[in-house]
Nucleic acid binder design. Structure first.
Length: 471
RNA sequence: GCUCCCUUCGUCUAGUGGUUAGGACGCUGGCCUCUCACGCCGGUAACAGGGGUUCGAAUCCCCUAGGGAGCGCCA
C-alpha cells in the first residue's frame, strides 16, 4: 500500500510554526516512502473559518516549499458524504439520536466534577426511540467496555479504557457533522495510511479508532508529535514573538533556514545540524521523533539563517534581499551589483532585513556618525591620513576602482605616514560608512563608489575641522 | 478532579546496561585581522528526586515531584 499522509489545518488563523513542523514531518514521511502528501482544509466550523486564513495557510505552505500532491480539499464540500455516513451508522444502530438539553448536560458535568469523576455523557438517550423530526443531535455509540489501543509511532503503545470514553456527538442539532466524524470519514475516503498530527489529538484517537472500527474501516497508523513551546517553556504564543510562518518570511528569514530549524526540533540524525531538503527526506525517521515538547529558540534559528544566507547562491539571496531594500526606500538598481553586496555582507547579518539595514550606506549617505565611532576615529590625527587618501583616491581612474588597487592606495598611505593600516583604514571607514564596522575597506570603497567616497571624505574632513574649532 | 503523556547542559539534542555522558546554539577565552562579522582552536554547563533490579544504570521497574495535553453541539 502506498503511503499517503495529510496536513489538515483548520483555517482559523495563520500557519504557525507548530503546524508548519507537523506539515513538514508529514511531507517528509510521504516523500521518504515515495507516497503522497495531501492538504485538507478542515473548515467545518463555519463560525471561525475564514477565507483569509485559508489564504494565509496556502501562502505559508508555498513559501516553505511544502508541495502537496493532492488538494487543497475542503471539508465543507464533503457534507453530503458525512451525512450519508452518519445515516449509515444510525441505520446500523452504531449511533443514536439524543434530545438531551445543554442544560441537562451542563448539570451532569457539574455533578460529575463535584464527584471527582471524569465528566462524560451518561448515555441517557441510548436505546430511546426518538422521532427524527424532533430537534436532536446524533451520538456515536461508543463501546462500553474493553480497551482501545493506539499503536503510536512516536508514543508507542497507549491504551485507553472504553469506560473513560463517552458517546460523542457526531452530528449537531443544526445538522452539521463534527470534527471526530469528519476526520475519520475523510481519512478513510482519501486512503490516508499515516496520520501525523499534534499530540493534542492523542485523546481523540481512541474515539476515532472506535468509529472506524464500527464503520468497518481499518484505522491508519498514527504518530502524535509533541508541541512546540516558547523560549520560556510555556505554550508558544504571540508574546514570544512571531509564531506565524509568514511573519518569519517578512522578518527576513529564509524558508530553508526555518525548515532546517523545525526539522531539528524534536528530531535528529546523529550530530548533523545542516540538512538540505533532500537530506531531510533521506534521513527523516518518524519513529525517532522525541516524545517531549521542545522550546523554540530564536538564537539557533538566527544562526541557521545566517548560515544559509552565507552559503546559498548569492543571486538567489540577492533576489530575496531586494524587497527588504525596497522597504528602506532603496532601489538596488541604483548601485553596485546586488550579488556583490550579498557576498560582502552576508556573513554580517542574521536576517535579510538586517542585511538590508547594514547595507544602506552603499546606496545613500548616512544621516549621522555613530557617536562613539566618530569620537574614536575622526580625531584631529585622522585629518592627515584622510586628506592624503582623498588625493590618492581622486587620482584613481574609474577603471582602477577595484579592491586590489584600492587596497594598495590605503596601504601606501599608511606606509607613507609610517602608521599601522588601522590608523588609516578606520578613520576612512567611519568617514565612508558612518560607523566602525563594514566589510574590508577595499570592498567597502568599491561598493560605495568613487563619487560618494570623495564626497564623504570631504564631509569627514569638514566634520573634524568643525569639531576642532569648537574646542 | 479524572484520563493520557512527558522529564539529559540555559536551549535543541546524541545516548537503547559498562562513555572522561558526545555534538549544536548561546555565553565565554584565544587565534586570524584595517573594523565588524565569518572561520578556526579552547572553556563553561546536564542525566528532576528517591527507592529497587543488576557485578554495573542516563539507559530496566516502582514511587514522588514538576511540566503538558485532553475531558465542547472547536478543530
Amino acid at each position: 500500500m502506498t503511503v499517503r499522509t495529510r496536513f489538515a489545518p483548520s483555517p482559523t488563523g495563520y500557519l504557525h510554526v507548530g503546524g508548519a513542523r507537523t506539515a513538514l514531518f508529514s511531507y517528509l514521511f510521504a516523500r521518504k516512502h515515495g507516497g503522497q502528501f495531501i492538504l485538507r482544509i478542515e473548515d467545518t466550523d463555519l463560525e471561525r473559518s475564514t477565507p483569509e486564513s485559508v489564504n494565509a495557510i496556502l501562502e505559508g505552505m508555498t513559501w516553505l516549499g511544502l508541495e502537496y500532491d493532492e488538494g487543497p480539499f475542503y471539508q465543507t464540500q464533503h457534507f453530503e458524504r458525512y451525512q450519508a455516513v452518519i445515516d449509515e451508522l444510525l441505520d446500523k444502530g452504531l449511533a443514536y439520536r439524543c434530545t438531551c438539553s445543554k442544560e441537562r448536560i451542563d448539570k451532569l458535568r457539574e455533578r460529575q466534577m463535584a464527584a471527582k469523576v471524569k465528566p462524560r455523557y451518561d448515555g441517557h438517550c441510548r436505546g430511546h426511540k426518538i422521532d427524527p423530526e424532533e430537534p436532536h443531535v446524533v451520538r456515536f455509540a461508543n463501546p462500553v467496555d474493553g480497551l482501545v489501543v493506539v499503536d503510536d509511532r512516536i508514543r508507542g503503545r497507549v491504551a485507553f479504557n472504553n469506560g473513560e470514553l463517552d458517546d460523542l456527538i457526531i452530528r449537531r442539532s443544526d445538522g452539521s457533522p463534527t470534527y471526530n466524524l469528519t476526520v475519520v470519514v475523510d481519512d478513510a475516503d482519501m486512503g490516508i495510511t499515516d496520520v501525523i498530527r499534534g499530540d493534542d489529538h492523542l485523546g481523540n484517537t481512541p474515539r476515532q479508532i472506535n468509529i472506524l472500527n464500527a464503520w468497518g474501516k481499518k484505522p491508519p497508523r498514527y504518530a502524535h508529535v509533541p508541541m512546540i513551546l516558547g523560549d520560556d517553556g510555556s505554550r508558544l504564543s504571540k508574546r514570544h514573538g512571531a509564531v506565524s510562518v509568514i511573519a518569519y518570511r517578512d522578518q527576513g528569514y529564509l524558508p530553508e533556514a526555518l525548515l532546517n530549524y523545525l526539522v531539528r526540533l524534536g528530531w535528529s540524525h546523529g550530530d548533523q545540524e545542516i540538512f538540505s531538503l533532500d537530506e531531510m527526506i533521506a534521513f527523516f525517521d518518524i519513529e525517532s521523533v522525541n516524545k517531549a515538547a521542545s522550546a523554540f529558540n530564536r538564537d539557533k534559528l538566527d544562526w541557521l539563517n545566517q548560515h544559509y544566507m552565507q552559503h546559498s547562491d548569492p543571486l538567489r539571496i540577492a533576489h530575496l534581499l531586494s524587497p527588504h531594500l525596497g522597504a528602506l526606500d532603496i532601489d538596488p538598481a541604483h548601485g553596485p551589483e546586488l550579488t556583490a553586496v550579498v557576498t560582502a555582507q552576508a556573513a554580517r547579518a542574521k536576517t535579510l532585513r538586517e542585511l538590508a539595514d547594514i547595507s544602506t550606506f552603499i546606496y545613500r549617505d548616512f544621516d549621522d556618525y555613530d557617536e562613539s565611532s566618530a569620537k574614536k576615529h575622526l580625531r584631529p590625527v585622522a585629518r592627515e591620513p584622510l586628506a592624503r587618501l582623498r588625493t590618492a583616491l581622486e587620482m584613481l581612474a574609474l577603471d582602477d576602482w577595484k579592491p586590489d588597487t584600492l587596497h594598495h592606495v590605503v596601504d601606501r598611505v599608511a606606509a607613507e605616514l609610517e602608521v599601522n593600516m588601522g590608523k588609516v583604514a578606520q578613520p576612512l571607514r567611519v568617514a565612508i560608512v558612518g560607523r566602525a564596522a563594514s566589510p574590508g575597506i577595499d570592498v567597502t570603497l568599491q561598493l560605495v563608489g568613487k563619487e560618494a567616497t570623495l564626497r564623504r571624505i570631504d564631509r569627514a574632513l569638514a566634520w573634524i575641522d568643525d569639531r576642532q574649532s569648537q574646542n
